[in-house]
């Protein structure tokens, strides 16, 4: 392993050592409000820099969540330094993911007729990394204007076939799935630049994410929205590690709204945790924590370790959001603690 890569691996593992522990979360849960939580977070080195500008004025829940997201992106940037330069390289994946998220958000606000809302919502810190002018998305008034903003990006080619009429907005689910399919294709393609050992391990990590995406699709479309199995099959990601098309069909055919969760609990990814919870999102987070913590400790490849660290950081952010929202809505400390996912 090259010295620089070894340094990234060591740095990532050290960063994980500074993650918040269960007792930290418990002490945060006991705080009286968002402001107190933010003040308490300032005392942790990992958060102090980002939250230092926050004074004694009331901090809104949404504002706190945006700060957490910004911190995450900054952490990624600090670890990568110059890797962002290659816009087709694997390490650009977080930007791609954020770009897709923002495009979907913009379309969502557009189709709801409240395009202005996107201005309030979009993260300004992204504009330095995005492959298009994210601010311009805030000014678009119809789908064709949106396509113009995306003109010289790969997303344009993905969305163009979906454009029906000049001003008509295609179905949001179709847009989201098309963009995600492109994202996973691109991600798998980007791994080809890595040496074989690293490529295989990275590929497995990505394919596992594809599996979880498809399972989530099943759960949401079939279990929550009650859509047809055909719809799920059409929108699925055509890649898999352990959750094949056949298994997916099997799940869709056998399940209904009530039994789908039971069937999902039996999937190998979740078997270990099925006794602990019946909450789907919590099940996925627990499975991710288990998987990525192992990868972070065991893998020798900086790409895998870095990816794992970012996934674990996302889990930490989700935990903090859970704490903030739980405190904001006066949930009991036990019920908040049950929703947290952490190792120690």
């Amino acid at each position: 392993m090259k010295a620089a890569k070894a340094a990234v691996v060591a740095k990532a593992r050290a960063k994980y050592g500074n993650f918040l522990t269960l007792s930290d979360y418990k002490s945060l849960i006991l705080k009286g409000g968002v402001n107190e939580i933010i003040t308490a977070l300032k005392s942790y080195p990992a958060f102090s820099e980002e939250f230092s500008s926050v004074g004694n004025v009331a901090v809104r829940r949404k504002q706190a969540e945006e700060m957490l997201a910004k911190r995450l992106f900054k952490l990624y940037g600090d670890l990568l330094r110059f890797e962002f330069a290659d816009k087709n390289g694997f390490f650009y994946y977080r930007v791609r993911r954020e770009e897709i998220k923002q495009i979907v958000n913009a379309v969502m606000f557009l189709s709801a007729g409240v395009g202005d809302m996107f201005i309030l919502q979009f993260p300004v810190f992204l504009k330095d990394y995005c492959s298009f002018d994210i601010g311009s998305l805030a000014s678009v008034r119809d789908f064709s204007e949106l396509m113009l903003v995306l003109k010289n990006t790969p997303y344009y080619d993905v969305l163009r076939p979906l454009q029906i009429e000049k001003n008509d907005i295609p179905d949001i689910r179709t847009i989201e799935n098309a963009l995600n399919r492109y994202y996973f294709d691109w991600l798998l393609e980007s791994t080809k630049k890595f040496p074989s050992g690293e490529r295989e391990e990275l590929k497995k990590v990505i394919l596992r994410t594809c599996d979880l995406y498809n399972i989530r699709l099943c759960y949401r479309y079939k279990g929550i929205l009650g859509l047809s199995g055909e719809m799920v099959m059409n929108n699925r990601i055509p890649h898999s590690l352990r959750f094949s098309k056949l298994q997916m069909e099997n799940l869709l055919l056998k399940s209904d709204n009530e039994t789908i969760m039971k069937l999902i609990s039996g999937i190998p990814y979740f078997k270990k945790f099925s006794g602990e919870t019946q909450d789907f999102e919590l099940l996925i987070r627990k499975s991710n924590l288990d998987y990525y913590a192992k990868k972070l400790r065991m893998s020798q490849y900086d790409s895998v370790v870095l990816h794992s660290l970012m996934e674990l950081s996302e889990l930490e952010n989700t935990n903090l959001t859970t704490v903030i929202e739980g405190v904001r809505y006066s949930l009991t400390s036990d019920s908040i603690t049950e929703m947290l996912v952490c190792e120690k």
Partner: peptide, 28 residues
């Protein structure tokens, strides 16, 4: 207001309000 929010103000060009900045300090 946070400096980031200030950058978003330009997207409200059509609105009827006017914001006059005095100075930028400590991220605000």
């Amino acid at each position: 207001m946070p400096s980031e929010s200030y950058t978003k103000l330009k997207f409200y060009g059509e609105k009827s309000f006017v914001f006059v900045p005095f100075e930028e300090k400590d991220g605000f």
